[in-house]
Design a protein around this nucleic acid. Structure first.
Lengths: 127, 127
DNA sequence: CAGAACCATTGACAATGGTCCATTGTTAAC
DNA sequence: GTTAACAATGGACCATTGTCAATGGTTCTG
């Protein structure tokens, strides 16, 4: 396995590369979605973010697009990164979410029908 | 056409039949999703809700399940109840929402792949 | 070394969709 | 006629996902 040198960057770098604001990054950190180390030289209090932070933020965005809240994403990540959990758990979690989204689609179509009926009722009333 | 006698009920009746709390009903009214008339005998200030309020609240619930916000629902209803708009407009609106939901599903599946990759990377790191 | 640019913390603010509380007024039941 | 149940209003409060502003310290640039 290739040894990867861990590279740490300050928040400004992450901002440039991840496309989110610094407040968002600090917010994610407060929520436990990402981690930083305090700076090596202790003359300042700047955060140090590892490279993976970028992928992690990309993942958060994906999760949100997929309809996950931060709490759900956290739960999922915890399951996945827990060595004792097997993949199955995360898979089930995700499948549940997909089912949920599919249900929402069914609801949307049903809603369409309701709307059509309403529209018809309205035009009858008017004529 | 059959003449329907308009029946008006007080908020408590709506609460019992619609399955939402009185605060929610008043909230919907403030948002313009439902309407009431002030009471006929003007010795009190009680709201009077027409029968259709029940269907309307059911519709709001459906809309929410389908992923509509109150603002979106309002816009949709306005379009539908506007006599000059033809049905097409509402249909387009709704289709856009369905597309949105479908996109969210695609995102969820993509997210699943990302998670699998992450999981694999993690187990490699550990072994 | 001055000043710009960066970073930290704290706390306030925003929108969304309600929910609860205190106070006051009305109606219904006994 | 008194009391319980119901209704109205106004304002506070909740979670979620950020965003902004004030204040003070650090680093970089010329």
């Amino acid at each position: 396995m290739v040894l990867k040198k861990a590279i740490f960057v300050r928040i400004g770098e992450v901002v440039k590369k991840a496309g989110v604001g610094p407040d968002t990054i600090r917010f994610y950190e407060r929520q436990g979605l990402i981690q930083s180390l305090p700076s090596k030289d202790k003359t300042n209090t700047y955060r140090n973010y590892p490279e993976e932070t970028l992928q992690r933020i990309a993942m958060i965005k994906q999760a949100q697009h997929a309809g996950f809240s931060i709490a759900e994403f956290s739960a999922l990540i915890e399951t996945i990164e827990n060595p004792s959990a097997d993949f199955f758990d995360a898979d089930i979690f995700l499948q549940k979410k997909i089912d949920e989204i599919e249900e929402r689609m069914r609801h949307a179509r049903k809603f369409l029908k309701t709307l059509r009926a309403t529209k018809n009722a309205l035009s009858l009333t008017r004529s």
